[in-house]
Structure formats: C-alpha cells, structure tokens
Design a protein around this nucleic acid. Structure first.
Lengths: 347, 347
DNA sequence: AACACCACCTGTATCGGTTCAGTAAATACG
DNA sequence: CGTATTTACTGAACCGATACAGGTGGTGTT
C-alpha cells in the first residue's frame, strides 16, 4: 500500500500539521508551497519535504474562502440523456475543455438538465454558492434567456454559438455558414441539382443559421430544387426524414445531414429502400466522428476538431476569468472530408 | 432581466448581508435558512425573505470548511476521448449518477485521464484538497492498483465491477456472467453450434469474466466450436475481428459482441463480405443503445438500463458517505432483446 | 415575590487556508 | 561602528459559513 498516508486513513493533514513538522508558521508554509517570495530556499525545501511526508495538499475550500481563484468551471447540458450518449460530440467537447482546465488545476462540474430554465437555476445556484468561478454555455436558441440572466448575475461565461445568438457574451463558434456553403458547392460541383438537407433541432440557433446558409447557397448556385427537414438529431427522426425525402416523386440526388447520427440512419433507410449509395443517392454527414467510418460505404462528412474546439472554449473562459477580453472570432470552419457516400449523380 | 441580483452584478451577498437586512445575527440566519430549531417562525420568515431579496445562497466552500458534508463526487474515466464519445454507455451512466446527486444538492466532478496511475493521482489530489467527498471508480483491471491505494487514503468510494475485481471496496455490478450464459443459450437454442465472441479490452476485468462465462456456457452446451477475439471496443477493431472470424474456413454462424460499436462494425463487414444477416450469420450486441436500432437489420442485443445502473451506483456511494454499509449484490442482469440480427442458422 | 424554566437569540470560536503589518536578525552603507 | 536596508519569518486578521455556550426576557409555579 505504497500510497497510504503516513498519518493513516481518516485524518487528512492541514497546513498546521505541515507547519509544525517543518518548524515554521502557517504563513511560511503558504508562501513556501505557493512559490511566493518571502521564504529562504532552505525553508522552502523543508516545507515541501514536510508536505510530501504528510501527504498534504491545501484545501480548495479554504483557499476559495480566502479569496483565491479556483477555476472550477460549470457546464450544464440540456438534452435527454439517451441522445447525449449517442452524440459523440459532447464527450469530445468535454474532453477538450478538460485538457485545458487540467493544466491549470481546474475542474469541470457537469450537470445534465432538461431545459434552459432549469439550467438558469443550476447556474445561478452554482454561482451564488461559489461552486463555480465561470461557466460554459451551449446550445443557444433564438432569444435565449440565459445570456441576459447570467450576465445579470455577473457570472463569467463563454457562450458556444454565433454572436448573433449569444447576446453579447464572449463566445466561440465554428463558421457553420461557410461550411454549409462548402458542402453545397461540393455537391453541386459533383453535378447534383436536387439537394435536400436534414437539419437538427429547429429551436437551436445554429440550425437556423445552417438552414439559412443552405438556402442562400442553393439559390446562388441556381439549384433546381432544395428543401430542409428538421429533426431532433436522433436516428429515428433522421430515418423518418430520409424516408420522406427519398419517397418523394422527384427525389433529391444528395442529402446533407446536420450530424452523423441522422446520416447513419439515412444510410440504412436508403439501403432499405433498395437505393445504392452513392450511385442513386449521395449522403453527406456533419460532425464527423468514428461513426462515419463504421458504415459501408463510409460516410463523407464535414469534419470538425471537436476536441480542439472544446479546448479553445476553455481557453477563452480562462481569459475571461483572468479579467481579460477573449479573442473574438470563429474557432474553425468544418472541412469537407469526402469518403464513399458521395459521388456524381447517375444521369 | 428578471433574475438580476438586486445588489447588482459583481457583488455576491454573504450571510452577513442577509443578517443585517433581516436584523438578526449570522447564527440566526444559519439556523433559519437550514431549517434548524432555535428561531421563531416569524424570524425564519424574515430571514428567508431577506435571503430571497438579496439572492443569497450559502457558500459551499465556507460550509465545507466548517465541517458540513458537501456530496461532491468524483469520477475519472481512463479511456481515449475519441472512444468515449462513441460509447453511449458513459453519458448515460453519468446521467444516472447525476440524477441521484442532484436530488441531494450534490455535484459530479468529471475528469478524463489516460490510465490508472494518472487516475490515482487525480483521486488523491481531489481527496487531499477536499474537492470531493467520495468517488466512483470504473473500468477495473486485474490486480487493479486503485482499490488499495484509495482505500489507503481513506477515500470513500464505490467501485463499478464484480467484487472479485474491486478488492474489498463497496461495489456495484451487473451480472455479466449470467447474461453471457443467457446469450449463448439463446443462440444455441436457435440451433447455432459454432459461436464466436468479439470481446472488449483484454485488460478490463469484466472482459475476462465474460470470456470465462462464454467458455463455460459453450462447454456446458457442448458447442461444436467457439472462440473469442479481444478488441479495444472500437469500430475499427470490431470490424477487423469480424473479418478474421468470417474469413476462417469453418466460420461461426453466430457472433456475440461485447458492446454495440463493435457489433455495428461487424454488421458492415458482413455486408461487405456478401453475407446476409441473419441468414448467413447471426450477430448479437451488448450494451444496447439506440445505435442498435439504426442498422438494417436492427441488432439483437443484451440490453441494460445504464441510466438506472448509474443511479444505483450513486445511491450506494451516498450510503457510504452517510456512514452506512451499502447493499451488496449485483444491480441487474442484462436482458436479451431479440431483433432482426439473430435467427436460426441456414442449414 | 422569588425562582425555575423555556424559547429565542447573540457573540464568539472554529474550520484551513491567504495576506499583510510588524519584528528580529543579517547584511550594506557611509 | 552606528544606522539604513534587506531578508526571513511570525502573528493576527480575514474569508463565509456552522456550532454552541451564554444572555435576555417572558411565562409558569409555588
């Protein structure tokens, strides 16, 4: 049991114990341990040795209480559990946030809520009870109440979403409009003239942005026909939307999906209907995850460094916590990754 | 801006402000707010009104410091981010834990680490710095160092895994051996005599348990042939393992997978090789998630209330934190959910 | 009227850190 | 050699809550 505390289980040492062992005052221990000037190198070494021997680390609560920063960051996600699990997006995103927080000794407080109102309650409670020093806000809707509520509280936050949605909060976003444009131009360049889109949840701000960008691109390229169907991002609804599209009399020759789950479901539906991908129909996914490479053919996708995105969000939040003004501007634009599910339409 | 604090942003009220506004002492506010006896109902009402008016909630740090419990629970997961995102398991599991913690005002501290050693470091730091009052440990390996290390620290924890793996820690687990037995008996009852298994990560304790149970069941039923191939749970390795199995001269007629991702990949491989599921080959998944219903045919699976499992784990941990002895015994046994990917073998 | 008793509340110590005004000793300077 | 400056440290105040001994006033009892 190499790591068992010398003091024995059950009793965690405090700064007082360390001070006693090192033969100095509490204040000296604090200075020594935090690398502050005011103690000799000899003393610092003795203190560190004593701390090591006792297995002491400063209590975060006590630190927080006496005014120091703690960098505990809150994230509340408002989507049903069952769907969250399937969206590879969030785990990678969280993982990216953490990678940055961990460097600074920070921590991520995670909470799954059912809607924006519950989230406001949670964030408010976190802030008031000083559990978090800042938060990351995701999934912005039109006229989202969170921005003004939380700004009113004074909660430092970074919003994930286009600035047009995030009501003045510092934000981080991917340039979805540009990516939709690229996707549509790619399909058009392959020769597609009838392109449909299976969108995400209609309430989400970025769904509207993508929808608008899709319209604009279709218009600009003079496509023969286009349409969007919104879903809740689930496989079930992705399948249903695809069925509707493919069963229509003048069916599209290409479909652009808003996430990978609906695209995978769409692929199954195409197979079920006896259509060959990409010969009869091209499919293009979004939020490229490993899921896109599990299917036959593999799904072409607009891919996206979600981990890096999370990391950048965390960096911007830390800047805010440091009292700075975070860099403004999109984090990245998803890039086209062609695989086997897209090809020129059969004449 | 209905919720903006009357005190204005930037200044969070403390118990002193509330006491002043209500015209009582700090002690009285504490008693009143926490529903303790010692204050008249009239005073309690005044205090609550004052707290509401100022938007005050007690600082968790201060509370923790003065001895009260906090119920912040730690969870460190040691798997690569890219795979975590794909395993629907974790998000649902986390969600289940949270649902229970939230009721008691608790919180979940999440950390993604790279291996057991890093996890030990994280848990130790969490415990020593009093950031968590207990932890959930997952993914036990053979001779896992965590049990003894963390028990040595005195960290209250609940281990997710069979007691044979978790070294005396209070634990919660699903009866995988029984479920594997059921799966094999089901396939045998359909008439399969050559059954293979695509397992998870070999280092994980439950993989060994399932492998042993698979052997035992195959033996007991007098199967003609059986074998296991281990993977890292990823789609890529699931595909490779399936390819190996299906390309063998005397190929199995049924394959049992250890998670849904490898099963989905296996399904693609079968299609790629021109084999029809379930006519030529039956596939049976594990950890049934929505993913299993996205494919054609839909995947039969050993399904599993992961959310409920997480909730039970949290309940047992809270029992430990309350100083009690949590219920021992498996939480549940995965149950067979037949869908379109299993059928009697072609003669 | 004297006393006990209770309900209600105040004041203070305490938790484990950080911070900072002092102080004492060591070094630099004229 | 006496005085200024620096260095190294101590001691106490403080952060925001909880806990508890003690004080105050009102009611009940004899």
């Amino acid at each position: 049991m190499t790591g068992s505390s010398p003091a024995g289980p059950g009793h965690r040492p405090t700064i007082k114990d360390v001070a006693a062992l090192a033969g100095v005052s509490k204040g000296a221990v604090s200075m020594a341990f935090n690398g502050r000037p005011g103690v000799s190198e000899a003393t610092r070494a003795r203190v560190l040795a004593a701390a090591g021997a006792l297995g002491w680390e400063p209590s975060l609560s006590a630190r927080a209480l006496s005014g120091s920063r703690t960098d505990t960051v809150g994230l509340a996600i408002a989507r049903p559990a069952r769907m969250l699990g399937l969206e590879p997006f969030y785990m990678e995103f969280i993982s990216g946030i953490e990678s940055v927080l961990a460097e600074r000794g920070g921590a991520l407080l995670l909470r799954l809520v059912k809607d924006a109102d519950e989230e406001i309650g949670v964030q408010r409670a976190w802030w008031r009870s000083r559990q978090v020093s800042g938060s990351v806000l995701v999934d912005f809707r039109k006229d989202d109440p969170r921005a003004s509520e939380l700004a009113g509280l004074g909660l430092p936050a970074v919003a994930v979403g286009h600035p047009s949605l995030t009501g003045g909060l510092p934000s981080a976003w991917t340039d979805d409009a540009a990516a939709v444009g690229e996707a549509v131009r790619y399909l058009a360049a392959l020769g597609h003239r009838r392109i449909a889109r299976v969108g995400g949840a209609a309430e989400l701000g970025h769904t509207a942005i993508r929808a608008a960008a899709f319209e604009a691109a279709a218009h600009e390229l003079g496509l023969e026909q286009w349409s969007s169907i919104d879903t809740d991002f689930s496989g079930t609804q992705g399948a249903r939307a695809t069925r509707t599209l493919l069963a229509s009399p003048h069916r599209p020759t290409a479909v652009l999906y808003d996430n990978d789950l609906t695209a995978v479901a769409g692929l199954s539906v195409a197979a079920e209907m006896g259509l060959s991908v990409p010969r009869d129909i091209s499919l293009l996914a979004w939020d490229d995850s490993q899921l896109c490479r599990l299917t036959r053919p593999e799904l072409s996708a607009m891919s996206h460094d979600v981990f890096g995105f999370g990391a950048e969000v965390a960096r911007r939040l830390l800047t805010v916590l440091d009292g700075g003004q975070p860099e403004a501007g999109p984090v990245a634009t998803p890039v086209l990754t062609p695989r086997g599910s897209t090809a020129p339409p059969r004449h």
